[in-house]
């Protein structure tokens, strides 16, 4: 019994090590004094300082964050609408097709999405003159197309869980359908909206392939900068930047988890006491 527990902990430790040791190593080396990423020569914050003066990297980071935030916001709105259509409107005509097309981006290779969007943008530019150039707009549009599928999946699951009689009760108490949606449905699916937003944000921040296809000169996202600079040889600045991003993401996820738990307890919280 005791032996079994010990071996379970070992497996767990290996699992965590496999997932997080590389990240930990990356963080540790961001404080390395040496120019060589793999040789430890002493503690230093100098790479953080240099990072602050690297305009190219900071611009790329700022662009990526703007794209990610815009993308997440649009994806949440559109994905929620799509989820509503699927959960709340029964078997409308073309429902199966709609569902299939909506979820296709989840399994479509990035290369195909990227290439096809590039072709679309070029064709559009030639025929209607929009988009004027490739950059922020095209990358954001491209990201929305696949992020909204993820958002729709998350929101749909939550929406399906909600007891229909809550909405009926609100209507019965005199609330018009729009009020019902704003006062009852939205607060109840809020946790899903938040996690959908964060998911879309992360997916966008993370994307290299699609962005490479649809971006133009002058619009370089963070992953693109990191990728190209790694080919030149890794600068410890990248480690510093990655550390900041990891901390940023960890805090965001923690906030999301806490708020989700608070809201989630309204349905699955502690069991009622008997009187």
């Amino acid at each position: 019994m005791r032996r079994q527990r010990w071996s379970l902990y070992t497996v767990l430790a290996f699992g965590y090590a496999f997932l997080y040791l590389p990240v930990l190593l990356l963080i540790v080396y961001s404080f390395n004094e040496s120019r060589l990423v793999t040789v430890w020569s002493g503690f230093s914050l100098k790479w953080y300082g240099e990072l602050l003066h690297n305009r190219q990297l900071l611009d790329a980071a700022w662009l990526s964050i703007r794209i990610a935030a815009t993308n997440a916001t649009f994806a949440v709105v559109l994905g929620t609408l799509a989820a509503n259509a699927l959960v709340r409107h029964g078997r409308f005509r073309g429902r199966t097709g709609f569902e299939l097309l909506l979820t296709a981006p989840l399994v479509m290779p990035d290369v195909i999405i990227g290439l096809s969007l590039l072709l679309l943008f070029v064709a559009l530019q030639q025929s209607v003159g929009w988009p004027g150039g490739r950059g922020f707009t095209t990358i954001t549009v491209a990201h929305i197309t696949f992020s909204l599928a993820y958002v729709a999946v998350v929101v749909r699951a939550r929406l399906a869980q909600i007891d229909r009689s809550l909405e009926e009760a609100a209507m019965d108490l005199g609330a018009h359908p729009l009020t019902v949606y704003l006062r009852i449905t939205l607060p109840l699916i809020a946790p899903a909206l938040l996690s959908g937003w964060l998911l879309a944000f992360t997916l966008s921040l993370d994307d290299l392939v699609i962005a490479s296809f649809v971006s133009g000169p002058g619009a370089t996202t963070l992953p693109m900068v990191v990728y190209s600079s790694v080919r030149m040889g890794v600068s410890p600045q990248i480690n510093a930047l990655a550390t900041i991003i990891v901390v940023f993401v960890a805090v965001a996820v923690a906030i999301a988890a806490l708020t989700t738990r608070g809201l989630g307890s309204t349905r699955t919280g502690r069991r009622p006491t008997r009187d």
Binding site: L166, D172, L263, T266
Partner: peptide, 13 residues
Amino acid sequence: VNMMFQSYALFPH
């Protein structure tokens, strides 16, 4: 008219 639902349908939030 008002209705009391079988599940009570109290707004959890």
